[in-house]
Amino acid sequence: MLRKNTSSFERVEQILILSTLFLLVVITVQPILNLLAISLSDSSKVPLMSGLTIIPEKLSFDVWAILFQHPRVLTGLANSVFIAVVGTILNVVFTALMAWALSRPKLPGRRILFIFVLITIVFEPGIIPDFFVVKKLGLIDSYWSVILYKMVNAWYLIILIRFFEEIPNELIEAVELDGANAFQVLWLIVLPLARPALATITLFYLVYHWNDFLRPMIYFNDQDMWPLQVVLRQFVVEGDKAAMVGIEAMGNYDGASQINMRSLKAGMIIFTIAPVLFIYPLILKFFTKGTMSGAVK
């Protein structure tokens, strides 16, 4: 967008905006860099490190070596990617289908369907009733138990409906007059126009699957199925045991005298964040202005 006259007032505004955002960046990124620094420091130095430092003390890759050598980390990574990718595809497809239908204002029964969906937002019966259902469905120790959970997230569904409703009705009617059926309208008009919204819920679903540890932990007894979050959690919990003060636990403190727990935890946190960091810029690509106007013509 070209600016004809950038007044000095506008420049001051710009500086204000940028410095505010810059401050935000600093306070959000600093703790993460601190974790990175701790994970890269020698264990004997970690107890002495404060929460402010972002420079490793006595550089050491022990923690990262452990993370990469742990037999379950790679399978965990593969499981995580599998669950996240398959889950997200199903999520986005079925959420989009349902959202498109429910965004039609004249759809008979729309109101009832909305309430049907809304009830699921406020009533979260909790993990125990969920477990009994998953057990009855025979999905314990099956990837489907976690892939299908939140297949259509009511929250994202309603958000997507809201976005679909913003699409000018004339556009849709014009294509319908040309004889396009409901699926074609969705594919040709609605989805391309709602790209930023779709990208957003894709990211939301992806991150939901990526971060979820509770359900895989409860539903998968087979450790080979564990996604990264559960593996790494287990990994840290195991190491934690002695410090958590349990005599019976002390033995599992494998290598405790070599590795500082804080350091290991820090490494684990960074390890789980890193893959998502690569996805984000890809998602941001879909955030382009002008999708709507392009289609109107």
């Binding site: 264990s43 004997s44 107890p47 002495l48 002695a242 410090a243 003060v245 349990g246 005599i247 002390m250 033995g251 403190y253 405790a256 005298s257 070599q258 500082n260």
Partner: peptide, 17 residues
Amino acid sequence: GTAGPVVGIYREKMRQV
């Protein structure tokens, strides 16, 4: 410290630092 092995772990870690 919790008496027993945990005390041993404290000692180990202290000697490491």
